[in-house]
C-alpha cells in the first residue's frame, strides 16, 4: 500500500513505564496498546508509507515472516477507529 498513515490531530503515542506498554492518548482518553500494535504505531511518523513501514518491521522481526497483511489490517482498523488517517 502506498498510502501514508498519520496520527490524527489530538492523538499522541508514547511509552508509559508504569503500564509497561505503549499507549495512545487523545482527548480525555487512553488506549493501552498490545505489543504488535505498539510496534506498528511506533513506525507511524506521517512521512513513510505503509510499504516502507512493513519493510522496516520485517527487518526488525525477521522470524515473524511476511507482515504486510497484518500491518495493513491493523492500520485500516486504526483508521476506522479514527486514530489515524491514511493519505
Amino acid at each position: 500500500m502506498a498510502k501514508t498513515p498519520k496520527l490524527r490531530r489530538g492523538f499522541r503515542f508514547q511509552w508509559e513505564p508504569a503500564q509497561e506498554s505503549y499507549v495512545l492518548l487523545y482527548p480525555e482518553g487512553m488506549v493501552k496498546l498490545n505489543g504488535s500494535a505498539g510496534a506498528i504505531l511506533k513506525e507511524v511518523d506521517g512521512e513513510r508509507n505503509v510499504d516502507s513501514i512493513v519493510a522496516s518491521l520485517e527487518q526488525q522481526f525477521p522470524d515473524a515472516g511476511p507482515l504486510g497483511k497484518d500491518v495493513e489490517e491493523f492500520l485500516q482498523d486504526a483508521e476506522k477507529q479514527h486514530w489515524i488517517e491514511l493519505v
Partner: peptide, 8 residues
C-alpha cells in the same frame, strides 16, 4: 512519577 498519563 506514579504513572498518571491523563491530566485535566
Amino acid at each position: 512519577a506514579m504513572g498518571a498519563a491523563q491530566l485535566g
